[in-house]
Amino acid sequence: MGVELVAVTSEVLNLEALTAEISRGASGDGAITAFTGLVRDHNQGRRVTFLDYEAYEPLAVRALNRIIEEAGTMWADTRLGVHHRIGRLEIGEASIIIVAASPHRGHAFAACRYAIERVKQIVPIWKHEHFEGGEVWLEGATADPEDEHAKQAAYKIACA
């Protein structure tokens, strides 16, 4: 039973399964790092009740694969898996999981951080925030994968 390294899914995310897939048959690894993004109960002074995530799925999968390729050029010995959940998510549920494996902990941490920063820049997924008293579509970055400034900004954060 293989787990894809990239997924955009309405299913509950399974960190254990993604970690197992990343680790499979790799005895040269010295470190695995994981990031889990959660739905929190407040945002910009609003009391959030739940989030509804929407994706342009085929492009979101391509953008996630692109991020993994980018990280692969920056930390060549490091492997990444990224799963993003879509649909209605309750407070405390995981919206994204990222796992990085590497011979070296520094590379694993950096690749993990780089991936989440790039997700927020270029993956076509949107949060529809439902809060006490209303709802709003959150809008962050204008997605442009060719924007080298954004890419460098993510790299700098990853290596800070």
């Binding site: 993004g37 995530y53 994706a55 342009y56 085929p58 492009l59 979101a60 391509r62 953008a63 993003h84 919206s95 994204i96 989440i116 997700v119 927020k120 820049q121 270029i122 993956v123 076509p124 997924i125 949107w126 949060k127 579509w137 959150l138 809008e139 962050g140 970055a141 204008t142 997605a143 442009d144 994968p145 060719e146």
Partner: peptide, 29 residues
């Protein structure tokens, strides 16, 4: 913008049957 689920540009040409997508600023994660 995207054409056939690949990021594109406003000046890109469009052909019969293409899927053209317009994407607000993203907020995933």
């Amino acid at each position: 913008v995207a054409v056939n689920a690949e990021y594109s540009r406003m000046a890109a040409s469009v052909n019969e049957g293409d899927e053209v997508a317009f994407l607000p600023p993203v907020s995933g994660g």
